[in-house]
C-alpha cells in the first residue's frame, strides 16, 4: 500500500499528510456505507470490551459500588489506594493455592490428554473401512458440542455417590468412591471429562493435517519396503509435527485461562482444596464475597500473566514454525 501511495503523491505534487487526509475524505465521501457498516461492531466492542478495561481501576481503589450514579461512575468516585489490594492478594494463602491448582490441573490435562488425539488421528487414518471410520469419527467428535452442564449431568448420573459405577462397585463388594467429593480423585474426573469432550475435536484438527500430507511419499516408502510403523514414524509424524508444535504452544500459552466453566460446574466446597482455580476464585471473591477490588486485582494478575504467556507462545511459534498464532 505504502509503496503504491507514495509515487502517486509525488506525481500529484502533494506532500505526505495533506494528501493522505484529502484522499481519506474523498474515500469517505465516496464510500459512506463502509463506515456506517462498522458502527454496530465498534459500538459493541467499545462498550463491552474497552469500557471494562477502564473497570480495571477497581483493583487500585477502595471501590464502593453505591457511590455515584451507577457502578461505572462509582469507579471514578472511589478513593485511590495504590497497590493495597495487591498486597492483600499476594499475602493471602489462597493465592498460592489457586495458582498452583490452576497450573496442576491444566498441566495434568496437557500431560495426559495431549498425545491422545494425535494417536487417534493416526489410527483413524489407518482404518480402511469407510463406514467404521466415519462412525468412530462422528462418535468421538460429538461430545465437543455438549455444554459442560450437560456433561456434568451425564457424568454425575454415572459417577455420583449413588451413580451407576458406585452401584457396580458396591455390588462387587467394594466401597463407594466419591468421584465428585474425594480430593484424591476429583482432579482425575476433571482430566477424564475434559478428554471426553475435547479429544474428538483435536483429532479432527490432526486428521485435517494428515490429509495435507503428500500421498506419493507413502507409495515411495512402500516400494522401498517400509512397514506401516516406519511409514507412520518417517512420514506421518514429520508431516504432523508443525501442527503438534502449534497445538502444544497454544495449550501452554492458555494454561491460565482454560477449564474455568468446567471447574465451576463440576466442583463443590468439599473439593475446593484441589479444584479451586484462579478464575473460580475470582468469581467467588467478586460475586460471592462482594470483594470487588480483590477479585479484580486477581483477575488483572491473571490477565497480565496470561498475556505474557500468549505473546511468548506466539514468539516461540514464529521462531519454530515461521507463523503467528493469530
Amino acid at each position: 500500500m505504502k509503496a503504491l501511495a507514495k509515487p502517486s503523491a509525488a506525481v500529484s505534487g502533494k506532500t505526505g499528510w495533506k494528501y493522505k487526509v484529502r484522499s481519506f475524505f474523498l474515500y469517505v465521501k465516496r464510500h459512506p456505507a463502509m463506515y456506517l457498516m462498522l458502527v454496530p461492531g465498534l459500538f459493541f466492542m467499545i462498550i463491552y470490551k474497552f469500557v471494562p478495561l477502564y473497570g480495571i481501576l477497581i483493583a487500585f481503589k477502595d471501590y464502593n459500588i453505591f457511590l455515584g450514579n451507577n457502578p461505572i461512575d462509582a469507579i471514578a468516585q472511589s478513593d485511590w489506594v495504590g497497590l493495597k489490594h495487591f498486597h492483600r492478594l499476594f499475602s493471602s494463602s489462597q493465592f498460592m493455592k489457586v495458582l498452583s491448582n490452576t497450573l496442576i490441573i491444566n498441566g495434568l490435562k496437557i500431560v495426559w490428554l495431549f498425545p491422545i488425539p494425535i494417536i487417534c488421528a493416526i489410527l483413524l487414518n489407518e482404518i480402511r473401512k469407510v463406514t467404521f471410520r466415519k462412525f468412530a469419527q462422528t462418535a468421538i467428535y460429538m461430545p465437543y458440542f455438549f455444554s459442560w452442564v450437560v456433561i456434568f449431568g451425564i457424568f454425575y448420573s454415572l459417577f455420583g455417590s449413588y451413580g451407576t459405577v458406585n452401584t457396580v462397585i458396591t455390588a462387587l463388594g467394594g466401597s463407594r468412591i466419591g468421584f465428585f467429593t474425594d480430593t484424591k480423585v476429583f482432579r482425575s474426573v476433571l482430566v477424564f471429562t475434559e478428554g471426553w469432550k475435547e479429544i474428538g475435536y483435536n483429532t479432527v484438527i490432526y486428521l485435517a493435517a494428515i490429509t495435507g500430507i503428500d500421498m506419493t511419499l507413502y507409495e515411495a516408502a512402500r516400494v522401498d519396503g517400509a512397514g506401516k510403523l516406519r511409514q507412520i514414524w518417517h512420514i506421518t509424524m514429520p508431516g504432523l509435527l508443525p501442527t503438534i508444535v502449534l497445538m502444544l504452544i497454544l495449550k501452554v500459552g492458555h494454561i491460565l485461562e482454560t477449564g474455568f466453566e468446567q471447574v465451576l460446574v463440576f466442583y463443590n466446597p468439599g473439593v475446593y482444596d484441589v479444584a479451586d482455580i484462579i478464575q473460580t476464585y475470582v468469581y467467588r471473591l467478586g460475586m460471592g464475597q462482594m470483594d470487588f477490588p480483590l477479585s479484580t486485582a486477581l483477575g488483572l494478575f491473571n490477565s497480565v500473566v496470561a498475556f505474557i504467556l500468549i505473546v511468548g507462545a506466539n514468539a516461540v511459534s514464529r521462531k519454530l514454525l515461521g507463523r503467528s498464532i493469530w
Partner: peptide, 13 residues
C-alpha cells in the same frame, strides 16, 4: 482480543 478487562469490570458494565 488480547486485553481482557476481567469478570468483575464486565459485570459492572
Amino acid at each position: 482480543m488480547v486485553f481482557f478487562g476481567g469478570m468483575i469490570p464486565a459485570y459492572m458494565v
